[in-house]
Design a protein around this nucleic acid. Sequence first.
DNA 1: GGAGTGACGGATG
DNA 2: ACATCCGCCACTC
Length: 129
Amino acid sequence: MKVRNKSGNENIKTSGTSGTRKIKDEPNDATSRICLALALVPMGRVVTYGSLAELAGLPRAARLVGQTLRKLPKDTRLPWHRVLNAQGKISLPEPGAERQKKRLENEGVTLLNGKVDLGIYLWPKPGEL
DNA sequence: GGAGTGACGGATG
DNA sequence: ACATCCGCCACTC
């Protein structure tokens, strides 16, 4: 039996009571919801950090998305490569940027001059969700 | 409990 | 279109 969640089981605990949380914490922590929202992104489509945060119910927490993705394990099945910044460009420094680009093109996402046309690939489109 | 941080975003120059 | 600055939010030390 393989451990699909090496730490997944309770990987994201601690922060529950981080303090900033005033009333009760919601069913899921922010990090968890970001992962869930990310899992919904269909292949061949992309989302921006900001929109993903919003989809996760965390408007304005775009940076959180970045920090969260940063912590993702290498073997994660989440489509982290479908996340781009609001400019339609890859934010990842160097190491992963190339891999991300390759994966995107592999899914049919065309990068023009290193940029993706969000008007076409951004998910969800109005009325689509 | 407090300060620093970041795979961002939007406004400005 | 590009570079810079400031603001945001939750996480980490």
